[in-house]
Design a protein around this nucleic acid. Structure first.
Lengths: 228, 228
DNA sequence: GTAGATATTAAATGAACGTTTAGTTAAACA
DNA sequence: TGTTTAACTAAACGTTCATTTAATATCTAC
């Protein structure tokens, strides 16, 4: 490869008298791999695909990350960590349980929309295969989300704001529909192209209301129900 | 291969003086492929894997189905068709909208538990890749489920049983949490092994209540609200 | 019982895979 | 400026992939 510039807007851009920037290669690989893994899954992506999209040599994946699998694991761990930390922080906050639950839904929705647009797809894909590519440390993270949501639901039930629902099943329906929505937006665009596709914020609002109403004790108002 | 019997309980069983049964090979391949595709995805499964599990020769996949991709498509189309027919039949039935919605959830849950235990996983996987392996005829089927559920929700809103919710978003949260639950049961067993995993029927009941309560008009009883 | 059609097999094919290797180039440091 | 180290490249490696081929075995019909 000589002075030829790479496809603009993609991968590592290096000028003619090119400075070496190892961090750029790593970042380009991470970005390219995240997008491709989310779209096609681990086995559906070759190292050549990733390298080409990143604009670097195939061998750099093994060189920088140790191999295709390690690159995948690194991406999974990084995105997961940030979201889990968010959820745990919010779950620990005080205030009425319904409001905290609302905040959790909003936080996951926000992360899935802006900071980590490929997280839900990658995570869901990984879960479908039983977490085969997950290191045990990463495996612990969905458990932490589960525990955080469960805690809030249990408190809501205890305080009388929620019906006596099963916290695990509630967690599954909440996170399930949330992850499903963000992971399948690409498909929806293809299947229902005529209708304007619903955006993340709209769905978050819908799900917040649906959950809070669905969990609320009948007769009592859904929100602001704190027992002294 | 001589008189050696295959691994018992798997694949095509042929006795010593073995009668030829082409239908057996096809069925064995379909069963093996369904399980493997669901567990590892299209790209995560090789034709050798499938053939070995089915107890037939690799070449039979191309011979009977035309190739790996066609086998996959055949499975997807077959399982989808049956479930879509179920949902449409129920959605068309009379009775209070909340009850019909309950019945739809139950029907999908039943199919996912008993008749097609791998459907949700395969479908979800396919959706995550944007429906790449789906023929246009198969692509139309999720749309039909969407339309059916939407119709029921719209009727519920019109009759005053439901809040004025968005039918599309409601569909997504309903189907999303349902599919998510059944598609991720394998992962749950691995991540929360201490707790007894919740079964399909329990979750169906939970989701029915959550949805009906969540959609219900405040003040009015959730069920049996038919305007004359 | 034989002929013809169908099902099945083992082997071969060529492409694609992830990783390793040896060699080259740019940056860091003296 | 000369030397060392890290980043990078192109090629080769050995493996695995899905499919095709040619030959064989079995079933069906007569």
């Amino acid at each position: 490869m000589t002075t030829q510039t790479r496809t603009p807007g993609r991968g590592v851009k290096r000028r003619a008298g090119r400075p070496r920037r190892p961090a750029d290669s790593r970042a380009a690989l991470l970005a390219a791999a995240t997008e491709l893994f989310a779209a096609h899954g681990f086995d559906g992506v070759s190292v050549s695909d990733i390298a080409e999209k990143a604009g670097v040599n195939r061998a750099m994946i093994s060189y920088h990350f140790g191999g295709k699998r390690d690159l995948y694991a690194a991406i999974l761990a990084a995105t997961f960590q940030e979201i889990v930390a968010d959820v745990e922080r919010i779950a620990g906050s005080e205030g009425p349980a319904p409001e905290v639950l609302r905040a959790i839904v909003a936080a996951i929705g926000d992360a899935a929309t802006h900071r980590h647009p490929h997280f839900c797809t990658m995570m869901l894909r990984e879960v479908l295969t039983g977490g085969q590519h997950m290191a045990t440390a990463v495996l612990a993270q969905p458990e932490r989300v589960l525990a955080a949501v469960q805690r809030v639901v249990e408190r809501g039930v205890r305080e009388g704001a929620f019906r006596p629902v099963d916290p695990l099943l509630t967690h599954l329906s909440l996170v399930g529909s949330l992850v499903f929505f963000f992971a399948t937006s690409g498909f929806r665009q293809r299947v229902i192209p005529d209708r304007r596709p619903p955006d993340g914020a709209t769905y978050v609002k819908h799900l917040q209301d649906l959950m809070i109403e669905g969990l609320a004790t009948r007769g009592a108002p859904a929100t602001r129900t704190v027992r002294p």
